[in-house]
Design a protein around this nucleic acid. Structure first.
Lengths: 127, 127, 127, 127
DNA sequence: GTGGTCTAGACCACC
DNA sequence: GTGGTCTAGACCACG
């Protein structure tokens, strides 16, 4: 899987990495049971400190997306991932805000639905 | 319009305020041309620092959601609001991440479409 | 509240601190709504690095014992704290192991019950 | 005796094994004088490294739960097992922390006593 | 080899 | 003032 970081962004690096891994899981680019690169390896690949990678992995672990063990490093968890109430709230609020922004920018409801559909098309539905 | 802040949230206060104003505009709870409360008034209503409100207003201005003039303070801009490329990118990435999270949590594509529709229902479409 | 760390212990410092704060909450030595010392202050008081304190506070936050905000630092959460399934499992397994150790050491069941009671006596029951 | 390891757990494998053997002894599932499986046999049964099993056995020996002799390998020690001061301290601190966690989670003292009793019921009291 | 802990110091964002 | 991010490097524990 290919990871691209924007070092100029206001979004923290560890957050960008987390987001891309979550997207990778949703797109089945990363399969459950698959190991992520070791923190050291990924840190050197991406040119960031290993502690920054560790933070991403630890948060993904805390949120249930991966398991971390000392044999195989970080391993993608089985789907579905249970979200806790706080996570659900953040997702909901985030969606509301982003969609409100699109509405304010003049996008029609249908245009927004199309955009959502094109996003969903890239993600694999769980049967 | 009613603003609710969560002081325990990891989301910065100024961001919460911004988000709710944008949602208010999308839901036509705040009409174009309408004045927002003065910085001072809102600060005392919400029990937060003047700087915090000012930061929200300044960012809303920079992003085109409000205009600031000396007489009427911050007034809601006319719709639609043009987003710059950076904003578009942030919205897109944000939507992708949030939807990926929902997919990983086991939500079907149809459930996600329903959720989006229920969000859109609360927002007024521009003709 | 008084915190004592054992730098020779195999138990990590951040864990010792976490444990003592949880005990402090259970004993109502720390009241809900009360602020913990700032990371910098506590770090210098205890003679450890501020990142070590941060780790304790962050884990306590993740487990629901405190809220962290930028105004008042770490604040003790309202009781009761909801434990997630993983936490419950760890508590259960831990109790089983520790009590098994006591049984092997020759303590009678009544002696163990007395010990538990003396621990409970120091903690304030929630009505 | 049946041993179940959780390779995803943050608890080290050797620790999980140790804990289950101690519980086995307390529950008289393992009788004093009984031999534990050989290091090699157990390692292959559980699918873990030889070193890991050896570490468990060595610690159990150091803590007095088993004796190791060349002919019969690790044999369960006679009860009771004397705990040294350090072990007693760890057990005490551990109980305090775990019970504090339960108290914070809203469990009443009576509920906690019941839980302890149900744990004790599975362990055989030494006459 | 893997991840985990701890230290140290820089700089930023929020209030 | 507060906490958050990122870097850097040392040393330990686990398997």
């Amino acid at each position: 899987m290919l990871v691209k970081l924007d070092f100029e962004s206001e979004v923290p690096i560890y957050q960008q990495l987390k987001d891309q891994i979550v997207m990778g899981i949703a797109m089945r680019d990363l399969e459950p049971g698959e190991s992520l690169p070791s923190v050291r390896e990924l840190a050197s690949d991406l040119g960031v400190n290993l502690h920054t990678i560790r933070k991403s992995y630890n948060q993904l672990k805390a949120e249930g997306f991966v398991h971390v063990n000392r044999r195989k490093g970080a391993v993608v968890a089985k789907l579905p991932i249970a979200l806790d109430d706080e996570q659900k709230l953040l997702v909901d609020d985030g969606l509301n805000t982003l969609i409100a922004t699109l509405v304010c920018s003049g996008k029609s409801h249908d245009e927004i639905r199309l955009k959502i559909n094109s996003i969903l098309d890239r993600m694999i539905e769980r049967k």
